[in-house]
Amino acid sequence: MNGPFDFTLALGDDALIAAQRLAEWTTRAPEMEEDIALANIALDQLGAARLLLTYAGELEGAGRDEDALAYQRGDREFRNCLLVELPNGDFAVTMAKLLFLAAYQVPLYTALAGCADERLAAIGAKARKESAYHLDHASLWVRRLGDGTEESHRRMQAAVDQVWPYTAELFTPDPTAPVDPAGLRAEFDATVAAILTAATLTRPETGWTPGGGRDGVHTEHLSYLLAEMQVLHRAHPGARW
């Protein structure tokens, strides 16, 4: 990554793709209260994405607004981490993804709130409160599922095992960025360790560490997600909505 534009774009893409995945749960959640909660978290992520992409467009100075950035880039131009583009899977996979994302976004946005760039600082100050709620919600469910029934424990552990490798990418060092992601690792590890222990779950060993999202080299999932997200916008070039 290089400079504040790439950094801002990457964070905006994380939030946008996370919102798109979470919104897929609407009408499908295990209980009505959870339908509301997941839609609420998706809305928060989408709100952060809009602020970040709008600002990224301004930093770039090429006249691209939030919609141009969201709807008119192909998958090779997206800079989100792989974690957020993974399919939702069952409810345990979704909660594992949300736990790791929120445990990363809380220290990230907190650090951002104190950074020298005023716009990023304001976005960070707003988003960290929302991320704290997301972390709380995910950790509650990870505990319920981990320490619930045998079946839910099995599924929650499998979900953590499946998703864990994708967390390494989040902390790839970038000393030029307004907040170096490498510096967030310790707080993330401490948060996650405490929650997994309380949930009677085991943190997998770090071995395979897939990456590439920040360079636009994604999993096979992202192109399908974008095809769906962008289909209508791309079918009507130049239209207002």
Binding site: P30, E31, E34, G148, E151
Partner: peptide
Amino acid sequence: EGAWVREAAAAY
């Protein structure tokens, strides 16, 4: 599909 989640919440 949500039954196992609700059962987990109840057990917890």
